[in-house]
Design a protein around this nucleic acid. Structure first.
Lengths: 116, 116
DNA sequence: ACCTCATATGAATATCTGTTCATATATTAA
DNA sequence: TTAATATATGAACAGATATTCATATGAGGT
């Protein structure tokens, strides 16, 4: 049985120590991956990019996206739980809006990349 | 059976048209979500943040991360297929490095957000 | 040629994710 | 109160994903 361990160990000690010293703590990687996960679905991306323009109620979002009301509600729930959006009630409607300044920048930067 | 369609339609026509005109094409959302998906896993994030510092061979990466060689190889393969990293062979080693300038910026921006 | 080390890869598996369907809740109008 | 609209939500299901395990490939060293 082959053991899954690098035998040589530390082929490049200088690089290793340099890299080790710049690594983040696990909690930071977890937190970042959570945000990226929220951005990794086209439906949620569309919702967010709509909200960049204006706050919107679910019904309006339904007109803009081509997705069922239920699917939109579920995704809004995800976005809210991770604090990317917030909501306010007004009569029968619930209006959602961005809860995060950084997201638009991250979005923009990635769009630039994609368009290259 | 309840039909999943908003009856009122266009509660806020001004907002709707404004939002519609700024929406991207589906291919762009797909492409962006692909990139974010690559950033949405802690193992891949660690790999990328190590590569920000220096190119590295798989064996070195294994020292830095606490993940099996196989898992690292699989993830490097994913990162390579989506063009986030590139590789070069040197003897028994394969060195991986970043293939994308934007990624570091996106990473940095998200880290700032997380640390707020 | 043989052995060893570094890396890759296919299959299997467990977990996670997004959508749908059905239904619940809540607000307003009649 | 009853009906209708807007939104939320739980369960079920299909598809995606990350890891592991076993093994394959490939390059050097002896």
């Amino acid at each position: 049985m082959k053991v899954d361990v690098c035998k040589t160990q530390q082929i490049h000690p200088e690089i290793l120590s340099k890299v080790m010293s710049t690594l983040l703590i696990d909690e930071e990687y977890e937190a970042m991956s959570m945000i990226f996960k929220m951005l990794s679905d086209p439906t949620r991306l569309k919702i967010l990019s709509a909200l960049f323009v204006s706050e919107m109620c679910v019904c309006d979002l339904q007109e803009v996206l081509e997705v069922s009301q239920s699917a939109i509600s579920h995704q809004l729930s995800n976005l809210k739980q991770t604090r990317l959006v917030k909501s306010r009630k007004s009569g029968k409607n619930v209006f959602y809006s961005l809860n995060d300044n950084h997201i638009a920048q991250i979005f923009k930067q990635t769009l630039e990349h994609v368009r290259e």
